[in-house]
Amino acid sequence: MDKDGLKAPRDKVWPYEDGLPGGINDVGPLDPFRPAGKSGGFMITCMPKIHDGTGVYLTPSNGRASFKAHAVLAEYRYPEEPAVNGRLPARSAWRKAPAVVISPSSGTLERGAKIPLVVSGRFSLGDKKFFLVVENGDRSNSITIPFECFR
């Protein structure tokens, strides 16, 4: 209920609330026909732009939940290493994937909500990989989805 006693729209994204401990779930891709990548995520075209319909549906797992979404560059031991070998670096070493946009990038979801988390923009680092990392409000729960780019 909102402050006027009216029922709030269930699938609306409310402003982010720091420290809210509710869990978050990825409940499937926006495009159910998106091919799976070798590392368990998605294979996508990234140039000249990220394929339309890229992203996932997000829901709270137990009551209200806040989230922040990040596009994080994969880490490689050497530059020529195949995309599939890219790893998620430690949080303190995260680097934003340039020109990748997550929408919405943060917010709070009510119990039972299901919203699209859309990945768009460009990723011009060739046949490499980035991760969509979605953390809940107190960082006790997160979702990590790899995106492998091909031309």
Rank of each mutant, 00 (worst) to 15 (best):
E75F: 07
P60W: 06
G53I: 08
K114F: 00
S106K: 15
W94E: 08
V56C: 07
L88P: 11
P79F: 03
P48Y: 12
E75D: 09
P116L: 10
Y57R: 02
Y78M: 08
L117F: 03
W94L: 07
T54K: 03
Y78H: 01
L88S: 11
Y57C: 04
Y76W: 07
S66M: 09
A93N: 14
S92H: 11
L73M: 15
P104G: 13
T59F: 06
L73N: 07
N85M: 14
T59D: 05
P60V: 08
V119W: 08
R95G: 05
W94G: 08
I44K: 03
S92D: 14
L109F: 10
H51V: 14
A97T: 10
S92Q: 01
K68P: 08
K68L: 09
R91F: 10
S66K: 04
F67A: 04
M47L: 09
P116M: 10
Y78F: 12
R91Y: 11
E75R: 14
S103D: 15
G112N: 12
A74L: 04
A97K: 02
G86M: 01
G107V: 05
D52F: 11
D52E: 15
L109G: 06
G63Q: 09
R77K: 15
A90N: 14
G107Y: 11
V72Q: 02
R87V: 10
I50D: 05
P60A: 04
T59H: 05
A99M: 12
A83C: 12
S103A: 13
K114Q: 13
S92N: 15
V101P: 00
A65L: 09
R87I: 05
A69P: 03
V119S: 11
I44E: 04
S105E: 13
E110T: 01
A90V: 12
A83N: 12
L73I: 11
P104V: 06
L73F: 02
A90Y: 13
H70T: 04
S103F: 11
V72P: 01
S61T: 10
I115T: 12
Y78K: 11
L88H: 08
A97E: 11
G53K: 02
E80Y: 02
V101E: 08
R111N: 13
S105G: 15
R77Y: 02
A74D: 00
P48K: 14
R77F: 06
A93V: 10
A83E: 13
P104Y: 00
S105C: 09
P98V: 01
N85A: 15
L73W: 06
R95C: 07
P79I: 00
R87H: 06
R64C: 03
D52S: 14
E80N: 07
A71Q: 04
K49L: 10
V101K: 15
E110Y: 09
A74G: 10
S92W: 12
M47E: 15
T54Q: 07
Y57S: 06
H70N: 08
V119Y: 00
V119C: 06
